[in-house]
Design a protein around this nucleic acid. Structure first.
Lengths: 112, 112
DNA sequence: CCATTATGCAACCAATTAGTTGCATGTCAA
DNA sequence: TTGACATGCAACTAATTGGTTGCATAATGG
């Protein structure tokens, strides 16, 4: 969970996922193309994505082919986002309670 | 986008969101309860959540009340997860292509 | 076999981060 | 006004990170 969020919290890594979304089965050298960083830099990012299970690999001879794995994204949706979608209604209720609270004769001063 | 993922990539911060999910409108001191860290530590985490717009605040006198804001989560779903859900089918196709590629008389050796 | 290609591993550095402590500021209640 | 409470701000430290370079290893093609 932490690994997945951490992996996604970087523009370069999200770009790599975009690349693999467009075309699966790319090698490290393929993915290095046009990236403003050394090969090992890209390799480290890919390693983080692998560790988070967002990218799965497939060795073919001396080439390591990379594929996007969407499963962890689905997990996040089910364990996190779905849960917090419900809070929208709860949030409305909270705000309603809050507003009613504020209506009471008890002046609410905001910090300057 | 980066801010949201980064904010979620920490167990303490996810726990804070859980707390606010259970009960909105808690103050900093409320949220400090049972947390193995100083008040300022918690305040920093809350600051990160605020910056990511995952938590919205409401001043009431000298108390800063915190509320969970589910909107950025929804944004992530729409811009990322939905997109990569589609790749499941594409992934199947890729693997199918890959397998067919492997079927060709060209031995595929895996690294030891 | 030899040269080339694709990748991995390790050391290193600059910059950021996570947490702390100390003190300042603003608000409430008596 | 005074004292207590809730928070903010700044400085500091230890640990982590993002990137580099150099070298080692394995597979391919002639």
């Amino acid at each position: 969970m932490t690994d997945v969020f951490h992996a996604l919290a970087d523009e370069s890594r999200r770009l790599l996922l975009d690349r693999l979304f467009e075309k699966g089965g790319q090698s490290l050298n393929d993915l290095c193309e046009g990236f403003p960083m050394s090969r090992q830099g890209v390799a480290k990012h890919l390693g983080i994505l692998e560790k988070a299970n967002l990218v799965s690999v497939h060795w073919q001879g001396r080439s390591k082919l990379h594929y996007l794995n969407p499963v962890p994204l689905g997990d996040i949706v089910h364990r996190w986002v779905g849960k917090f979608e419900d809070v929208r209604i709860a949030a409305l209720t909270d705000f309603k309670d809050q507003i009613e609270e504020d209506q009471k004769p008890k002046q609410e001063k905001r910090r300057a």
